[in-house]
Simulated assay, not measured.
Amino acid sequence: MGKQHWQDWINGLLGLWIFGSPWLLSHSMVTEVPVAGGILGMWNLSVVGLAVVVICAIALYRFNTLAEWINLLSGAWLVVSPLALGFSASAALTWNSVVSGSLIVIFAGWCLYDARNSRL
């Protein structure tokens, strides 16, 4: 096992939340506002959430900066995806995506910062 960062554990939990949030929020993106991107938004959250969980598991097993960069980009995608995919009419899903994505960006960036400073 490589060096573990506690931030990867938090990002893994955020990934689980993102993965399950379409169902845990009672399908609010589909039923709250009938938007064309609702189903696409559900799939987006599920796929990105699962990807974050898998990448975090890889980073916890063997840390490398590529995993953190992928998580950072996944988080950034979550921030812009409500507008890009057209499910921004659902306030619950938009806030869920933006806040969760922002936290993933922060924690992945923190890991990258720690890794960079530990080499100096």
Rank of each mutant, 00 (worst) to 15 (best):
G2A: 13
G2W: 10
G2S: 14
K3I: 10
Q4D: 04
Q4Y: 02
H5I: 02
H5Q: 10
W6D: 13
W6F: 14
W6L: 07
D8T: 11
W9G: 05
N11P: 13
L14Y: 03
L14W: 02
L14I: 07
L14E: 01
G15E: 03
G15R: 01
G15M: 01
F19V: 03
G20F: 05
G20Q: 01
S21I: 00
P22A: 09
L24C: 10
L24R: 02
L24A: 13
L24G: 14
L25D: 10
S26N: 15
S28K: 04
M29K: 11
V30N: 08
T31Q: 03
T31K: 03
T31W: 09
T31M: 09
E32Q: 12
E32N: 12
P34R: 09
A36F: 10
G37N: 09
G37D: 08
G37M: 03
G38C: 08
G38P: 07
G38M: 03
I39Y: 04
I39E: 11
L40N: 12
M42V: 03
M42Y: 01
W43E: 02
W43I: 04
W43F: 03
W43D: 06
N44P: 00
S46G: 11
V48A: 06
A51I: 08
A51E: 07
A51Y: 07
A51Q: 05
V52D: 04
V52S: 05
V53G: 08
V54T: 12
V54F: 10
I55H: 01
A57N: 06
A59D: 10
A59R: 06
L60F: 13
A67Y: 06
E68L: 00
I70G: 09
N71F: 00
N71S: 13
N71Y: 01
A76Y: 01
W77K: 00
W77A: 12
V79M: 11
V80R: 00
V80E: 07
A84D: 15
A84E: 06
A84G: 10
A84T: 07
G86Q: 05
F87G: 13
A89F: 04
A91C: 12
A91N: 06
A91F: 13
L93H: 14
L93S: 15
W95I: 13
S97E: 06
S97K: 09
V98S: 15
V99L: 10
S100C: 02
G101H: 02
S102Q: 05
L103W: 00
V105S: 07
V105I: 15
F107Q: 02
F107G: 07
C111F: 05
Y113W: 15
Y113Q: 07
Y113R: 09
D114E: 15
A115L: 00
R116C: 01
R119K: 15
R119V: 15
